[in-house]
């Protein structure tokens, strides 16, 4: 029963792990890598937004902090990138805990919470822009040194397996959350915080755990980004773009589900690539499309693609039971 719950994750991860054997085009591998990266970032948002119901509009703050943490630790302190990655996750979690402690202690919810996360992302962007150790506005370069011990790989397949491992990890964590008391508490808070408190849930602590976990996970995405591109600047790391990606991916796929962000990311970036082929590399069009997708999803499929799948399954189930009834009645007659 327990292991069975993880079977879909094992199958999906296994299937994705086989892809580099057949896909050799760098373009396709790059597409897969970025898709998994955003699935990871989206999963981070999903834990806080989809499960605990706290909508962040500034998830770039965690993504960027993870990216900057790993880059600066390597460059200024000579920390090994694998160690730096672990530390960067801690930094992401810490930033999450800090923002969470402040905003949840003061009972910020809904729009107020969205605004404050947005503001924190901006503050961090400006700090990264002004500070010396982040390289300021001109950004920061991680020296090229293609060795696995250095968390850099000769070929894209190496990066692909790294991001796949991180994404698979995020799926396992989310599934474990779904099957745990903590996850049930998060859903309860999402649905009705007052009721949750009345039933003995320490909503402050649960939300704090959610944002810490979410922050660390988004930082993992940031770390991968830094290792993959070896360059960061404040506008990239703390920009609105990643905050939007983070929330769009789970909304399209289905908030509060395990596979929603992964599916959402494949759909979003599939559509993105397809339309890019049509429009050329015109600036802006893909983000405009994201905006339109966001509205269309909310209008017609508020439960995301996973919700649609469940609906179709539900209708199928109903039809089957109705048929069974009819058969039984026919048999009785």
């Amino acid at each position: 029963m327990r292991a069975q719950r993880y079977l879909p994750i094992a199958l999906v991860t296994g299937g994705l792990a086989l892809l580099p054997l057949v896909v050799t085009s760098n373009f396709l591998l790059n597409f897969l890598i970025l898709t998994l990266l955003f699935a990871l970032l989206g999963q981070a948002w999903n834990i806080l937004g989809g499960f605990a119901g706290q909508f962040s509009f500034g998830h770039a703050v965690f993504f960027g902090s993870g990216a900057y943490a790993t880059a600066t630790l390597q460059i200024h302190l000579g920390v090994n990138p694998w160690v730096a990655m672990v530390l960067a996750l801690a930094v992401g979690g810490l930033v999450g805990a800090m923002i969470g402690a402040l905003s949840f202690r003061f009972r910020l919810r809904g729009s107020y919470f969205a605004l404050i996360t947005l503001a924190f992302a901006e503050v961090f962007r400006i700090i990264a822009h002004t500070a010396d150790f982040t390289g300021g506005g001109s950004g920061i370069l991680i020296p090229l040194d293609l060795r696995p011990a250095n968390l850099q790989f000769e070929d894209k397949a190496g990066f692909y397996y790294l991001v796949l491992a991180l994404t698979a990890g995020s799926l396992v964590i989310t599934r474990a959350l779904q099957d745990s008391r903590l996850g049930a508490w998060m859903l309860a808070i999402r649905e009705n915080e007052d009721s949750a408190r009345a039933l003995g849930i320490d909503s402050f602590r649960v939300k704090l755990v959610a944002i810490t976990l979410s922050g660390a996970m988004a930082a993992a995405a940031g770390v991968f980004y830094a290792q993959y591109f070896l360059y960061l600047d404040p506008g990239i790391a703390y920009g609105v773009g990643y905050s939007v990606e983070a929330l769009l991916v789970p909304i399209i796929g289905g908030m509060g589900t395990v596979f929603g962000p992964l599916i959402g990311s494949f759909v979003l970036h599939g559509v993105d690539e397809a339309t890019r082929g049509l429009t050329g590399d015109a600036p802006g069009l893909n983000l405009a499309l994201y905006g339109a997708l966001l509205i269309v999803m909310l209008r017609f499929l508020p439960a995301g693609l996973m919700g649609l799948a469940a609906q179709v399954k539900g209708i199928g189930h109903q039809r089957r039971t109705r048929q069974a009834h009819r058969l039984k009645e026919a048999g009785d007659a």
Binding site: F57, P283, L287, A288, G291, L298
Partner: peptide, 27 residues
Amino acid sequence: RTSHGKDENVLLVTLGIALIIENLALF
């Protein structure tokens, strides 16, 4: 039409509108 009576949705819809207007302008 898109909010389904939920404030979070309104927040997201206006974000979507902003993305469309801004990026079409950029285009």
